[in-house]
Structures are given as structure tokens and as C-alpha cells.
Amino acid sequence: MLLASRRILAVVLCAAALLAVLPQSAQAPWSGRLASFLWAPLRPGTAALAWLRDRVRAPEDPYPNLPDELRAALEERDRLRGELDAADLRIGKLEREVGELTGYRPADRAGWRPRLANVVERGGARPGGLLGIDIGVAQGVSEGDPAVVGGSQLLGIVAAGGSEGRSWVVPLDDRRAGRIDAVVHPSGAAGTGKGAAGREPGRGPRPTVLVQLLPQGNRTLVGELEPGADGRAADVRAGDAVLLSDASWRPAAQGMRIGLVESVGALDANPLRRRITVRMESDPARTSRLVVKVRESAVQGGAR
């Protein structure tokens, strides 16, 4: 029997060793297709188990330790933004149908358009694995497109190397994703803190603070706070919102929420400086559906 042959097993192990040391360029032309073929039989079961997972342990509260009023406002905003995205998706579908029937071409919608995607693949062996989604080049998805959940929570970025109907999303907390420029926005309306009307005695509303974040895995990113021009440490507190402000990301992603400041502490290497830990609002390990903001030109190109 073929499988009983030790010689064949030795050959297969040698081939695995050879593949393991080959550079990515040698595997890129065929490995994506083979990976998608291997994963295809597991998709339905994975979706069913993801549903069971959320029944076993409900997703965490996205806004822990916040006043009830603020939490309700944030949740209401996220819900409305989610509905807005859903309405956008519906409008897009109707526009395509109208276009097919009448030749009508809809106007440009600020350069991007939402595309709903299901997470169909997920690395189970290592934390911080990539998410495989069921839309790709054919649906207008291209590298660098932002992936969001809950209307405004940034989940990650679409990696290069996708195929016609499949793409990979690199979660924000993946250490390999590199540094991310962000801005810390004081919690509450108009930069208000805990003080009445956002003002503390002798101080105005807290200013926003620029910070560069480094992904750490497990839904966390850390950043080092630079002292202000006056030499004072930046005023950042737990619970402040962190928004993307990175020129290397697409315009559609700017200003979207990365997470909340979880803690502020001294930097290990330099106790006089401070570091912040940011916890993502979305959980990549438990996301089963997301929205990719694809470029309008790519949608038109992909539809051709």
C-alpha cells in the first residue's frame, strides 16, 4: 500500500523540508490556490462552530468601564452606523440591478463602497492569525482596503496576495502588521473628561494626542507618549478613544476607531516617559462577518 511505504513517507518529509525553506516567491504562484482548496471542506463546519462559540461565550462588552450614558450613546452610534452600512449595501445592490435594467450609472460615492464579507478561514494554530474572507478581486477588493465591524471599529487591513473570490485580512493586533499612527481622542463629547462640560479647573478641554502604536497580539497595541511642546506629559486617560490617523492607510479608514486606552503607565526602558496600552474594540478571533471598504474605481474595474 502506498501509505505503508516508508520510502514514500521519507520522500514526502524531505519535500516538506524543502518547501519549508523555500522563499515566499517560490510558493506564492500556487500556494494560495492549494490553501483555498484544502480549506474549502472545512468552511461549513467552521461557520457552524463559530455560531456555537458565541452561544457558549458571548462576545465581550466592547465598552467596558464606561458610564452608562456614554456607553449607551456609543452603542447607539455603532448600531446606526452598522445600519447605515447595511443600507449602503442594499443601495449598491439595487443600483446594480437598476443599472442592468436601464443602463443607469450611479454617481461616485466619495471614493469607496462597503462590501459585506464572511470570515471563512482562520488560522487556528497561532494567535494573531490572518482572517480569510469570501470576497476578493472580483468584488473589487484590493490590498490596503480597511476592514471594519460595528460600523466604525477598525478590524484590520486587506493583505496583498488575494485571489478572485478570496482575500486575507491582517488584524490590527498582528505584530507583523507594523506600526500604526493614531490619535488619542479624549473620551466624551468634544474632548470632555470627567469634569463638568469637559472642563477641569484651570484647564480647557483635553487636546488630542498623536501616538504611534505597535501591535502586541491579543487585541492590544502599545504606544509611547511624547511629551508636549511645553515639556509636560500628554494628558491621556484610560477609556479615551484611539482613532486611526495614518497616511499610509486609505482615506476611507482615517478616523475610524482602533480601540480604547486600557492603561497608562511608565515605560519600562525609561520610567520618565509614559506608554499607553490600547485594547481593540473588535475581536479578530471572534469575528465572523465584516465590511471591507473597497475603492469605487476598483469596484467598477472588478465588475467588468
Binding site: 515566499q24 494560495g32 492549494l34 490572518l130 493583505a159 496583498a160 486575507w168 491582517v170 498582528d174 502588521a177
Partner: peptide, 16 residues
């Protein structure tokens, strides 16, 4: 998949 260098975002390549 492994992550390589892409122009706008990292490139995902399954490495067997």
C-alpha cells in the same frame, strides 16, 4: 499564511 512585503499592505502567502 506568512506575511511578505506588499506595496500598500503586507502580502499574505501560505507557506507549506
Amino acid at each position: 499564511p506568512a506575511l511578505g512585503i506588499g506595496s500598500m499592505a503586507p502580502r499574505a502567502v501560505p507557506v507549506f
